[in-house]
Amino acid sequence: MSTGTRPSAEAALPATAPLSSSPAAPAAPVVAEMTPRPFRVVDRVRETPDTWTLRLVPDDGGPTIDAVPGQFTMVYAFGVGEVPVSVSAVPSDGVPLTHTVRAVGAVTEAICAAKPGDVLGVRGPFGRGWPLDQAVGRDVLVIAGGLGLAPLWPVVHALARRDSAGRAAAVLVGGRTPADLPYRDELARLAAQTGLQVLVTVDRADPGWDGRVGVVTALLPDARFDPARTVAFLCGPEVMMRVTAAALTDAGVPAHRVHLSMERNMHCGIGHCGRCQLGPMLLCLHGPVCDYGRLSPLLTIREL
């Protein structure tokens, strides 16, 4: 059994910052939530020069971690450290626990270096995922910047299978260069073989690139969606999400239907330590997915 906070738990948003008092919680579940379980790497695929996808199965005889799209786990490279990583595939995709990780520092470098057979510690799942129920009967826009596509990847697959019973679905991806685009082949396959509209752009082209060049918001005029009936899921660098969310609301998408996955630093994953506080929210608990209606006043405050 996983002990992480499931989206259905819908932790209520406190009116004031809850930092001074730790939530009273029974000791045993906290210990379980804080204790990494051993997971063995069964597969490792290089997505881009600095990014790998790892598939992990439990090494303690227990069940796998049953996360929903948008949730994250805390992945521990033994002896190095532990970091939050979103799930990039979920059990309903019929695959093991999957994480796509970019090597940016000590811990993520160690995780990316893990080879099949190696063991990592994992605890979770944590946080609130994408509110996919809002896709029913609506146009869906998935907008990703760089590796922000990883937490959205299970959503893209659900849309491709038409699980969500939504209307039109468009996937807009912005990357640094063509070589930095994760899941490039699979995106091309989904564009060719499913009803998904897939639009990709890069900041900087190379001589072979015959696709779009420019910021991800420049793709919006080509995306098929009716703003008033749209739900949007965004993930990427914070600046990219801020600008994109503003463009969407300018176009008429209601702010409360623009959902962002916020990647502030996290430590405990269970709302205990306060590392991931953003205004009145603890992102590990009330996020990482939050709606822009709630976030927009917080995103421009520099001290947060």
């Binding site: 090597a103 910021v215 918001t217 600046v239 990219m240």
Partner: peptide
């Protein structure tokens, strides 16, 4: 503004 956004190079690896 789009060109300025690209100058920010938001997708670069912080390493």
């Amino acid at each position: 503004s789009a060109t300025r956004m690209r100058l920010l190079d938001v997708y670069r690896n912080p390493a």
